[in-house]
């Protein structure tokens, strides 16, 4: 039950109290969260659709992937920052919400996948890599980030 203690502490912390008390501020954080979700999704799709050969076939996929990754990192940073604030306001509710945990699992998977697997692979010359591996990575990436967003939306519904 240590984890629950942490969520109780988070909700009673200054951050949690601020998130609870100021509805307007909370809404702005949610909006920033959505804005960066759009940016993150855009950069993920840009890279993955290029790897799948749907977009920008005549632009080297290394170029597309490297450019997209820069903004992916910006989007991820805003998403994490605003996300912590959003959780803080309803921490105990989140603790008891199964979709919150699905989302966190998918998010942890997504981040680990990007930085430990996808980037080390895409840092190499894509011409020398097997196309089917690049395509599998793209499908896995779209699936994992879709899951993060979809389970995230469902936190509010369940």
């Amino acid at each position: 039950m240590e984890l629950l203690t942490f969520f109780e502490w988070l909700e009673s912390s200054m951050l949690g109290q601020a998130a609870k008390s100021y509805g307007g501020v909370y809404a702005m954080f949610q909006s920033a969260h959505l804005f960066s979700m759009a940016l993150l999704g855009g950069t993920v799709l840009l890279t993955d659709l290029r790897l799948l050969g749907v977009l920008f076939r005549d632009v080297p996929s290394n170029v597309v992937a490297d450019n997209a990754h820069k903004w992916f990192k910006v989007a991820l940073a805003i998403i994490l920052g605003t996300g912590v604030f959003m959780v803080a306001g309803v921490a105990i509710k989140c603790y008891h919400n199964s979709f919150f945990w699905y989302k966190m699992t998918a998010l942890a998977t997504g981040i680990a996948f990007v930085f430990a697997v996808k980037r080390p692979l895409l840092n190499q010359d894509h011409e020398l890599l097997k196309p089917w591996i690049l395509k599998s990575v793209a499908i896995a990436s779209i699936l994992v980030w879709f899951t993060v967003a979809a389970t995230g939306r469902w936190i509010g519904f369940s």
Binding site: T109, V117, L121
Partner: peptide, 13 residues
């Protein structure tokens, strides 16, 4: 790197 990528991608899918 390719093997790791193929394995993790398959697992995620």
């Amino acid at each position: 790197v390719e093997m790791i990528a193929a394995g993790t991608s398959a697992a995620i899918i």
